[in-house]
Nucleic acid binder design. Structure first.
Length: 828
DNA sequence: CGGGATGGTATTTTT
DNA sequence: TACCATCCCG
């Protein structure tokens, strides 16, 4: 578990000022900014929370303060986050702070809360009660299936692209009818989007985007429901607001108030907490602009900046501040600390990616052996996953334990998905995605031919695959009916059983266990299947279903029939203002039996709840915690974490900033924010490194150091002398190094960096260019190439026919070109 | 139905 | 280079 911030270890004197309100133990230790944020008066507010400024503490303390001072009841509070991790964190802190149960409050992820709402009002939302949630994998296979069905040319319309299109539309709040399609390609995509929607509706499944959009529409279109929730949630707190997309913002607006002409009128208090400088998810629909829109549309009076940083020494913060100041259109913020300057930020230039990795390993050894750092507190960050390979192997070879973030998560593993598919079919036999996944797994002699027949039958009668099995004749049909019968038997068998028993029965009876038992590499998979039982068990008992977004018995207020909502909830004998103080701290085990939906009187089965949980929380993304291991992850994955020592590798043009990011508008600025996030992860020591050469896609690339180096304050940096051990083809000549010391980055801009490097790396491969060559091509000038267009010359080497130049062509990348062959014309 | 060959493709990612 | 998805064949 990684600490989210350092506030708990912040110096006691951080807030010595006497505040009248600080009599409450809740408020002690808060600095002025934090105190102001926590005790904000009713009304909308924006809290601009810098990295390491104690954002989570402010959020949770705010909620606790509202409750403690009687300004709010648990039922009137909603707190939204993006990740389950953040939601859990908030819940954990709150239950530690509050003397009573946090249950009554709506705390969760956007999707989790939407799910909760849709479960409660599934009829109004026109969903089956047992609707299943598709994750990205499921969504893609659903689209592939649809495309095959309708003979969509998957060359012209790759399923992946269609998925992005559909998800993108939903993020913007657009149904097929809302998309403005001017070209035939888009029209076709919209058509497929429409078909996809019909398919999902028929099968009773919703994807992540649909969860959000359907919930939004529910609020938008049902005035009683909307008013009910608006009245209920007097305090809405949004975490990581800079990451919200258009639809999420609209959803919040529905909850918060009504449009009145051109004005937006709201009775509740929306507190948006975020940091525009840490907005790094534009590529998946996040809209930083929501912050400005929020200020304008909600007529935000109170804006508070949390700029006091409790994490890093000032050299690190100076780097972060200086770097980010190169972005325009910021809301503006400067991190400060009372800690001293600390050590300088170290910058290392490696001759190759191998050498870079090997240097990191040496440095890590030093940190652990001499400087008292623990491996767990050391992180290696990189821009793209491909970079991890060399670092991993270097660490592996020197026997340093490490842990890589990312990769498949628990609920995404194939064997788990298979088991879940069976379970889903018990709940909802019309879930064709699940049907397809397991109809022939383990193998039952049901081949592609048979499936095609079945799909044809299902399509012509407009029913689900499960319902169509009787339409297929012959031996194939018998096999299909056998499968459906098997599912039916399972459903019968598991009736009234506990969740544990259900899963065990399904894993055994489906033949999954047997299948993996016969497989060479099956042992791990069987272990995972057993782990699934354990996960379900702990879901039922420990979590008590309160954690995640399932309809809770205590939420009976929400589960009112829509028709009754014309009356006040109070008239139903459900007082939304009733305090929940007298409720038990922990929900008793097996509370699910009491999960009655007041709407229909139906009970939400533990299985249904668990399936929602499995879709909404894919499980830990981090490998086996526990041992003291160095942490490897992308910069994106590092957001929200912090470490004593941080290495950022591959800080090179083309990689960081990434060349692909440069193509879209604002791409460079997002890359810079990404670098800002990376830098602010470090507490005590920070290393930035770049390499002259790098193996990428099986080709050696020659990269120039990142422009970001030029944006860092020289006083805070220390340029490390490369070691003299030889690595790769660009090993420095022995004795030629040692000239690095502390040097101004200003004297070599990104274009001239190379020639300076050659001073140190006086290798025969990259000789320093002294005399002006006759071809007139030299570093720094712009040239034109027939195929690649205009490019900047980074370096020139060799003479006569051997002469070659390294040219950076922007979107075409950086290339070495033989001047005798490539036709380069000098531009101007 | 499964295995091997082949070819296309390689930021970032949560729900 | 390395992974993957798809295809074709036994």
């Amino acid at each position: 578990m990684f600490p989210i911030d350092l506030l708990d270890s912040a110096p006691e004197g951080a807030n010595s000022g006497a505040h009248p309100a600080s009599h409450s133990p809740l408020l002690t230790g808060l600095n002025d900014e934090q105190l102001a944020a926590v005790t904000l008066p009713a009304g909308h507010a924006l809290i601009l929370a810098g990295a390491g400024s104690g954002k989570t503490r402010v959020l949770t303390t705010r909620i606790a303060w509202l409750l403690q001072t009687g300004q709010a009841t648990p039922g009137s509070i909603m707190a939204v986050t993006f990740t389950n991790k953040a939601a859990k964190e908030m819940l954990a802190r709150l239950s530690a702070m509050l003397p009573y149960n946090v249950r009554g409050m709506w705390i969760g992820t956007f999707h989790g809360l939407c799910n909760r709402m849709l479960r409660a009002h599934y009829q109004v939302a026109k969903l089956p009660q047992a609707f299943q949630i598709l994750d990205t994998q499921d969504q893609l296979s659903a689209i592939k299936r649809l495309c095959k069905q309708f003979n969509v040319d998957d060359e012209r319309f790759p399923p992946k692209q269609l998925m992005y299109f559909i998800a993108g539309c939903k993020e913007e709040g657009m149904r097929p009818g809302d998309v403005v399609a001017t070209d035939p390609d888009t029209r076709k995509k919209v058509e497929i989007y429409q078909l996809y929607e019909e398919q999902c509706q028929r099968e009773g499944v919703v994807d992540f985007g649909e969860l959000m959009l359907r919930s939004f529409e529910l609020l938008r279109d049902d005035v009683h429901l909307r008013q009910h929730y608006q009245r209920r949630f007097q305090h809405i707190l949004v975490d990581e607001f800079q990451d919200t997309n258009k639809l999420q913002y609209q959803w919040l607006k529905q909850l918060a108030g009504e449009a009145d002409g051109s004005r937006f009128v709201s009775q509740s208090s929306v507190i948006a907490v975020g940091d525009d400088d840490q907005s790094i998810y534009a590529f998946r629909g996040a809209r930083v602009g929501n912050m400005a829109d929020f200020i304008r549309e909600f007529e935000v009076k109170n804006q508070i900046k949390l700029e006091q940083n409790y994490r890093s020494y000032s050299n690190i913060l100076d780097c972060a501040n200086a770097l980010i100041s190169h972005n325009s259109n910021r809301l503006g913020k400067n991190l400060r600390t009372t800690q001293g300057p600390g050590e300088p930020v170290r910058i290392y230039e490696a001759p190759s990616d191998l050498a870079e990795a090997s240097w990191m390993v040496d440095e890590i050894k030093q940190l652990v052996k001499n400087d008292g750092f623990t491996r767990q507190e050391i992180a290696v960050l990189y821009r793209s996953n491909a970079q991890s390979r060399v670092i991993e192997s270097a660490l592996f070879n020197s026997g340093i334990p490490y842990r890589v973030y990312g990769g498949l998560r628990f609920f995404e593993r194939a064997e788990i998905k298979h088991a879940l598919a069976y379970l889903r079919l018990l709940e909802n036999p019309h879930d064709d995605t699940s049907f397809m996944r397991v109809v022939n797994f383990p193998a039952r002699g049901i081949g592609a031919r048979t499936i095609e027949q079945l799909q044809d039958a299902a399509r012509s009668s407009g029913c689900s695959l499960s319902d169509a099995v009787t339409a297929v004749g012959g031996a194939a049909g018998t096999k299909l009916q056998g499968f459906v019968a098997q599912i039916d038997v399972l459903r019968e068998q598991t009736q009234g059983k506990t969740l544990r028993e259900i899963i065990e029965t399904v894993e055994e009876q489906s033949g999954l266990i047997e299948h993996y038992r016969n497989e060479k590499e099956g042992a791990d998979r069987i272990e995972n299947l057993q782990e699934l039982v354990t996960a379900a068990e702990s879901f039922v008992t420990q979590e008590g279903f309160g954690k995640d977004a399932v309809a809770l018995p205590l939420d009976a207020q929400e589960i009112l029939p829509a028709t009754n909502l014309t009356q006040s909830p109070v008239s139903q004998g459900l007082d939304p203002e009733a305090p929940l103080l007298d409720q038990p701290l922990q929900a008793p085990a097996g509370t699910l039996a009491s999960m009655v939906n007041a709407d229909t009187g139906e009970t939400m089965s533990p299985l249904a709840a668990f399936l929602s949980h499995a879709s909404l929380e894919a499980g830990d993304n981090q490998a086996q915690a526990g041992q003291d291991a160095v942490q490897l992850m992308t910069v994106h994955a590092s957001k929200g974490l912090e470490f004593d020592a941080v290495f950022i590798g591959g800080v090179e043009e083309g990689l960081f900033p990434h060349e692909n990011a440069m193509m879209d508008r604002g791409g460079l600025e997002e890359e810079r924010r990404l670098a800002y996030v990376a830098i602010t992860r470090a507490r005590k020591r920070l290393y930035l490194s770049h390499s002259q050469t790098r193996m990428l896609h099986g080709q050696t690339r020659y990269n120039v150091k990142s422009r970001f180096f030029d944006e860092l304050p020289e006083e805070a940096l220390k340029w490390i002398t490369p070691r003299q051990s030889g690595f790769g083809s660009f090993a420095p000549n022995s004795g030629a190094g040692g000239a690095y010391g502390s040097r101004g980055s200003g004297q070599f801009g990104s274009n001239s960096g190379w020639s300076n490097k050659t001073e140190v790396f006086a290798s025969p491969v990259v000789p320093r260019q002294k005399a002006e060559p006759s071809h007139g091509i030299k570093a720094g000038i712009t040239v034109f190439h027939n195929k690649f267009g205009e490019g900047k010359v980074l370096a020139v080497e060799g003479q006569g026919d051997d002469a070659r130049a390294q040219v950076s062509f922007g979107r075409h990348g950086t290339k070495w070109l033989a001047l005798a062959i490539a036709k380069l014309t000098v531009v101007e």
